[in-house]
Design a protein around this nucleic acid. Structure first.
Length: 570
RNA sequence: GCACCCAUAGUGAAGUGGAUAUCACUACAGUCUUCGGAACUGUCAUCGGGGGUUCGAAUCCCUCUGGGUGCACCA
């Protein structure tokens, strides 16, 4: 629509004697001032030495000669804004499209079958799945879905740290606690390993002897010569299984898993190879990269330690090379917390220096997210210690179980609903704001059925769906023959979904979808409360039902893009 | 010390250089009683301070203040 108007405006302006290229067309901030607006007259007034209002009036007069059918009227307002009012038929045609082809409404082909890797979550076996991983998962999954929706071929990748100092610390902790991984279920065992990690970490920090032992163990684990290979294999398996269970609940299915243990040798080789080619240098026994030589904003980093072990940086090099040679992506997106930004920039610079002709660096994109903090200090999991990703999801689910306990569900239904709604509560809290910002997580608000929450959106969706179901029972046919203006505010919002969806994917900002859905759900709920929709006596009832159906479709689609499910009823 | 990021109602957020800064929660005042568990209306912000660019700035530039993060062998 925007393009249509833009072309129309440009052509008219040419006829009126103004040559400015593509004029600006935007949505007005507030409704009631036209459906689209252009401020082009204001921006070109200086160039032509005429008052903006005069220019705008000339353009509008030229337009009036031949208005296209989708425009009902054009006028000049304020200091020279041109406001376009779209025709009733145009909005009805949008509804028609949604009802016929809802799956495709809001799509674009900006990714045009491009291969895109989205790497996210990246938890570390032997350590708990913490809240940061939950954030990365929610954001990465949503971006993957957005890119897919806009035509990309997405590979979901997860890079898990199954080697490194944290593993040595966890194993050391397990050994000190008896050398057995205790627990009856995968989840209990994973929690036990997490506790051993914390325990090991506290020793590592204060006990010099233990620190030395752990460092030796770390080296042996890298070389696969430790005495604890069986323990390592079991611990790795258990934590990975626990992660997998969580991915299933969160609604993520990875196509590709990479492990740090696979990247260690290759990373070290790459660094040595490119040291000979002059990219890396020796320093105090370690091998380092002077990134600031190429870009003053960057800093020097160690890639290989003085005892020959590859650091995260070196492993990241191997991972990048592996991803590019294996999958040949047009774009490789990695999401991590902001803390990783500076060093990822260094790694990217190293890649640029190593492969100047392959364009790897140009195809890499690093998306960072903020931290999650809790609204009040009262937030703690049932276990009484740190809030892990798993405990947060579980607590949300239980809270929803309590809220819905008086509703008519079988126990199994309630489980399914509570899981979908609990996950939505947590994920929505993450995705509702700009991903670069820290988020303040308010547990009570996140699970609330009204307000800016996932459950609210799910609830509005099930309401809209219920309308369609009820109308079938009342045998009222859905058709678009008798439009009514009471649904116009909703239709205007529906019309903007493609815009929100495009903006979200272009900026890699799922919150544009979230904000949009809130607006749509709000307008629908208002309509729902003030109008009787299903009414055999009302000739416009069919139209209202059709609008409800379109709202249900778009809400469902939008929630899907955020990675949220809509339960059949709630 | 250097680098990067952030600052918008009581709270949490949105905002593409454009007209009267939007949404949600809370609070207070009023209206109303549902197709699915309430909804609706009103009140509450000189967009951290100061300069600048522009016809026009929450948005761009500079500066100050206040927060966050990162800077050599963790990831």
């Amino acid at each position: 629509m925007k393009e249509l108007l833009q072309t129309f405006l440009e052509e008219t302006m040419l006829k009126a004697g103004y040559m400015v290229g593509k004029p600006e067309i935007t949505y007005p901030k507030e409704s009631g001032r036209g459906d689209y607006m252009s401020s082009t007259a204001l921006s070109i007034s200086k160039q032509y030495g005429k008052a903006p209002k005069v220019i705008a009036e000339t353009i509008v007069a030229e337009m009036q000669k031949a208005l296209p059918p989708y425009i009902s009227s054009v006028d000049v307002a304020g200091p020279g804004f041109i406001n376009f009012h779209l025709s009733r038929d145009y909005y009805t045609s949008i509804l028609e499209f949604i009802l016929r082809d809802g799956e495709h409404f809001g799509k674009s082909d900006i990714f045009d079958n491009k291969k895109v890797i989205v790497e996210y979550t990246q938890p570390n076996p032997f350590k708990p799945f913490h809240i940061g991983h939950l954030m990365s998962n929610a954001i990465g999954e949503s971006i993957a879905r957005l890119v897919e929706f806009h035509g990309g071929q997405v590979t979901r990748a997860n890079y898990q740290g199954d080697i490194g100092l944290h593993v040595a610390i966890a194993i050391y902790g397990i050994v000190k606690k008896g050398g057995q991984i205790l627990g009856n279920s995968v989840s209990e065992k994973a929690n036990f390993i997490g506790e051993c990690y914390s325990y090991g970490n506290s020793i590592y920090e204060k006990d010099e002897v233990a620190k030395a032992e752990i460092d030796v163990l770390n080296k042996k684990l890298y070389e696969k010569t430790s005495d604890y290979t069986a323990l390592y294999d079991e611990g790795r398996k258990v934590t990975l299984e626990a992660f997998e269970a969580l991915y299933a609940i969160l609604g993520t299915k990875f196509d590709k898993y990479y492990f740090e243990s696979e990247m260690a040798t290759r990373g070290a080789e790459l660094v040595r190879e490119y040291k000979d080619k002059g990219v890396f240098e020796d320093s105090e026994g370690a091998i380092i990269f002077h990134a600031e030589k190429h870009n003053l904003k960057l800093h020097t980093r160690v890639f290989l330690t003085s005892n020959g072990l590859p650091l995260y940086d070196a492993k990241e090099l191997a991972l990048t090379v592996t991803k590019f040679t294996e999958l040949e992506p047009d774009l490789s997106i990695v999401t991590t917390a902001v803390e990783q930004k500076d060093y990822m920039d260094v790694v990217t610079e190293a890649i640029r220096q190593m492969f100047p002709s392959e364009n790897y660096a140009e195809r890499m994109e690093h998306i960072t997210h903020g931290m999650m903090r809790f609204a009040t200090g009262k937030m703690s999991s049932r276990l009484g210690n740190v809030v892990t990703g798993e405990s947060l999801i579980r607590d949300a689910k239980e809270a929803i179980m309590t809220i819905t306990k008086d509703r008519e569900f079988t126990h199994d239904e309630r489980e399914v609903v509570a899981e979908a709604v609990g996950v939505a509560a947590v994920k929505y809290s993450i995705l509702r704001s700009n991903i670069g910002m820290d988020i303040i997580y308010d547990f009570d608000k996140s699970i609330s059925f009204d307000g800016d929450s996932g459950p609210y959106l799910q609830y509005a969706t099930t309401r809209a769906r219920a309308i369609c179901r009820k109308s079938e029972e009342a045998s009222i046919k859905t058709h678009l023959h008798n439009p009514t203006d009471v649904t116009l505010p909703i239709e205007r919002i529906l019309e903007r979904f493609p815009f929100a969806s495009l903006r979200a994917v272009e900026e890699r900002q799922p919150h544009h979808i979230a904000t949009y859905l809130m607006e749509l759900a709000g307008a629908f709920n208002f309509f729902y409360a003030t109008e009787t929709i299903i009414d055999a006596e009302d000739p416009t009832s069919s139209y209202k039902i059709a609008v409800s159906g379109a709202v249900a479709t778009v809400l469902t689609k939008g929630l899907h893009l955020l990675g949220l499910k809509v339960p059949a009823k709630m």
